Simulated scan of single mutants.
Amino acid sequence: MMITTTPAIPTLVQQKLDAFERLQPEFEACFQLVQDVHGQQRFASFPVALTVRYLHSLWICEHKSRLLSVFQTIKEYEGKTCLELLRHWQGDENTADVVAFLQHKLDMLPFANLTRQVQAARYTRTNDGLASRLTHGRAILLNRGINLMMALDALFALPQEELLQQVRTACEQYGHTPDQIARQLQEEDSPLYTYVPHQMLAQRNMRVMNALGVSVLRKPADLPGQRTWRVVPSTEPLSPFAEQVVSGYLDLTAPWHNNLKADRFVDRPEQSNSGTV
């Protein structure tokens, strides 16, 4: 009788799982906001508090990546940079760095190149859905660009004193006063947020992100539909890999069978009336 035992979870891994359990509701809301700002939604207005919340959300998303040791996205969200921006925005009145960061995150808009691809797909490909997918992607980029302009418009429209007051109020609301930021930056160096790859952490991350993927990509254009030529369904039975038919090939199975030219050759010993060939 075979007895299976469940391997013990290391203490640090369990602490990471417990910490993420407490963070998960806020992470899900923040992840949704980041996706919306990046083009899934076009905001009618983008007040200063929403810019602060966007920076806060990026930090929370990085927090999740550190807790679950997702190496690929730890640096993608630039959460530590967001904390530094919020600290200097409140203390040094440094709005320029925030503007530069927003441009860095949101101003990636190759509209001309994408429009050329749409035109090429419409004229060279038919009924494969590529043009519609490219058009949908261009609309997402357009939303991202409009969100950037709305955010900058809100920052530039206010007098400096009123802008800083709104920033400080929003930072207090989301838990990023200067003293809190100092503690949060210090916590980044604690063992809880170190990179510790483990099967349990990977499984937890996959379950969470699979559920969020369904939630975020719920618009009709994101759902399965007419496929592009890049993902055409396979046809079965599949042909042999690297099959190549040589022209003029004759399948000769034995020296005295199917030998139309009566060529003499030997591939293996074979018995005939006159002896072994």
Rank of each mutant, 00 (worst) to 15 (best):
T6R: 11
T6K: 07
T6D: 04
P7I: 07
I9N: 02
T11L: 06
L12R: 02
Q14N: 09
K16R: 15
L17S: 07
D18T: 15
R22T: 15
L23T: 02
Q24W: 07
P25L: 09
P25S: 05
Q32N: 06
Q32H: 10
Q32E: 09
Q32D: 11
L33F: 12
Q35P: 01
D36W: 07
D36L: 04
D36V: 02
H38C: 09
Q40W: 05
F43C: 08
T51Y: 09
R53G: 05
R53W: 04
Y54T: 14
H56R: 13
L58A: 01
I60E: 02
C61G: 09
E62V: 08
E62Q: 15
H63M: 00
H63E: 01
H63F: 00
S65K: 01
S65I: 00
R66Y: 13
L67R: 00
S69E: 09
F71C: 04
Q72L: 12
Q72P: 04
K75D: 05
E76W: 15
E76N: 10
E78S: 15
G79Y: 04
G79A: 06
E84F: 14
E84A: 15
R87Q: 08
R87S: 05
R87L: 13
H88G: 12
H88F: 09
W89V: 03
E93D: 05
E93M: 04
E93A: 11
T95I: 15
A96L: 14
V99R: 14
A100H: 11
Q103A: 06
K105H: 00
P110E: 14
F111M: 10
A112K: 14
A112L: 13
A112S: 13
T115S: 15
R116D: 11
A120T: 13
R122F: 12
Y123G: 11
N127A: 12
N127D: 13
D128M: 03
D128K: 02
D128R: 03
L130Q: 12
R133Q: 05
G137F: 09
I140N: 00
I140Q: 08
L141G: 05
L142E: 13
N143T: 11
R144V: 01
G145R: 10
I146R: 08
N147D: 08
N147Y: 12
N147P: 10
L148C: 02
M149A: 11
M150W: 01
L152T: 08
L152M: 13
D153M: 08
D153P: 00
